[in-house]
Structure formats: structure tokens, C-alpha cells
Amino acid sequence: MRFIVCIKQVPDTTSVKIDKRTGRLIREGIPTIINPEDKNALEAALSLKEKYEGEIIVISMGPPQADEALREALAMGADRAILLTDRAFAGADTMATAYSLGSAVKKIGEYDLILCGRQAIDGDTAQVGPQLAEFLKVPQITYVSELNIEENKVVAIQELEDKRVRWEASLPALLTITSEANKPRYPSAYGIMDAYREKEVETWEKKHLDIDEERIGLEGSPTSVKRIFSPEPKGKGEIIKEEPKESAEILFNRLRAKNII
């Protein structure tokens, strides 16, 4: 089987600080990581490979520094890593990103399953996976917390807010994986050495892909970020200190007044 895993290198938001004066993220010296749920997607692929054998190809679109994220994926056990990097890809929104990734997937050729993380911790859009499936015209199952391959189809549990849904899809298909799906393995020290000394990260630029230039990068992005701001901190809550029964009644009336219940 051939698995393709899409990963994104993101700033480690647990160590991101905000410049109090400008309200912007201080990016200097912030460590980067593989987007956590992309790691879950990779782990899902690694477990499937242990069961069914095959090849795992990891792709990422990003600046040359994303090499580190791909090496980490190789160290965890991926077989091949491809970095889509070109100035022409810069500034892409989710649509242009999905289109570019889709072009790379087409160049790779045959595959059985594409696994993406549910969403990235920097943009939080959860759009690239679904858009990529649309570009490739393959079935998609999002928010997957369990998956297995049975005969020539994938069976997955989709984790929704109020229910879990069991879906089946024919292969090839695309799944987006949540953090509940598994606990990603550590890259081993042996794997790290191999990733840096034995394995290659292939670099694909615009010229290597059959791609419509008007649909990539900033120019090819139909959406743009209007403004970034830190949300206002929520006001202090109110504590109702009456007897439990009375408190419940007051709370009930307040919620009803606001049409919440």
C-alpha cells in the first residue's frame, strides 16, 4: 500500500509570546514543530504500514526550513519525504495550498490513502485536507479517531461534537486525523541519524509540477487575512451565591432571558 501524509511545520504555540506593544506574535527564536495532528496522521500511517506493509511518503509545502519537520517524519519511520518549496508558493491560502499539494500528489502517482491532520494549530482552519480531497476527486472522511483498512476500503470513525459516525470509503481516499486517534511515537535516535545521514528530502519547485501559475501562492489565493488581533479577555464571571435551589432558578431565568435555553 502507498500512504501519503501531508504535514505542516508550525511554530510551537506553547512557547509563542505576544509582543505587548504591537500585539503580534514574536517569531524570533520560537521553536518549530510538526503540527501535532499531522503527527497523529503520520502515526496512523506508520501503524497501518506495520499491518499491511507498503510505503509512506510525507509531503510538506513551506520554506526551506521545513526540511527539519520532514527529517523528523523520516526519523519516525516515513520512507520518502518531499518538500514543495518555491517563492511562487509563498502567501498561499488554504485553497492555493491544497491545489499545490494536489499537484504534487498527482506527480507522485498511484496511492491508496492520504492522511492529513484535522487542523493546524497556527491557522486552525481544518480546510486543507477537505480541499485536497476535492481537487483529487477522492472520497474524504474528516475528524477521524479510529481507522482500519478492510479489503479494498477504509473504515473510519468520525468524531463529531455530539456523535460518532462510522464511515466506509473506497480507496483511494483522504482522511483527516484527530489527536484522539493515537499517541505518536518518538523518532528514535537511530532514525534521526538515518534521516540526516542516509535519507534525502526531495525538493520540488514550481517547475517540477504540472501546475497553473494563477492558482498558487498569494496571487492564486481567493482569501486573505484582513487583520490579526488578540481577542479581548472575557469579563469576569458572576457568582450566584444563593441556596442551590434558588441559584439554579436565577441561573435558569438568566439563560432563558438571553435565549440560550
Binding site: P31, D67, E68, R71, E72, A75, Y186, P187, S188, A189, I192, M193, A195, Y196, R197
Partner: peptide, 10 residues
């Protein structure tokens, strides 16, 4: 080196 940083991170 990137390799040393990767080992440290692990």
C-alpha cells in the same frame, strides 16, 4: 547542527 538539535528535542 540540525541533527544535534533533533536529538536534543527527542
Amino acid at each position: 547542527s540540525s541533527e544535534q538539535k533533533a536529538m536534543q528535542k527527542l
